[in-house]
């Protein structure tokens, strides 16, 4: 029960902190912001990694491997595109 409580506190705290911090991002940067959060939302690769904590069996091994690949695609692509976009924002 205590574990569940911790999880809920983490969820609510992150939601609140995220709301406060991201409210201050100017519209100028909304596309890079979404691209960054896009990369971060693929944090599910950590969950995919946990699938392999113990030998998963063929079916779940396959599902886990697909999840790892698609999640990594999202993470790496997301950070890379964000970097490409932000590099273009210049002040003359």
């Amino acid at each position: 029960m205590q574990a569940l409580l911790t999880l809920l506190v983490v969820f609510a705290g992150a939601l609140l902190a995220g709301y406060i911090i991201i409210s201050r991002v100017p519209p100028l940067l909304h596309t890079p912001l979404m691209s960054l959060t896009n990369a971060v939302s693929a944090v599910t690769v950590l969950g995919a990694l946990l699938v392999f904590e113990e030998a998963p069996g063929v079916v779940f091994g396959l599902l886990g491997a697909i999840a790892l690949a698609t999640g990594t695609f999202n993470v790496v692509g997301g950070f890379a595109i964000t970097e490409r976009m932000l590099k273009m924002f210049k002040k003359h």
Binding site: L7, A14, G18, I22, S41, G47
Partner: peptide
């Protein structure tokens, strides 16, 4: 997904993204 995996990192990151979206 983080709650069922018991991963606080997943929960926190997911919640931040949800707030942003």
């Amino acid at each position: 997904c983080g709650i069922i995996s018991g991963s606080r990192l997943l929960i926190a990151c997911g919640a931040t993204v949800a707030a942003s979206g």
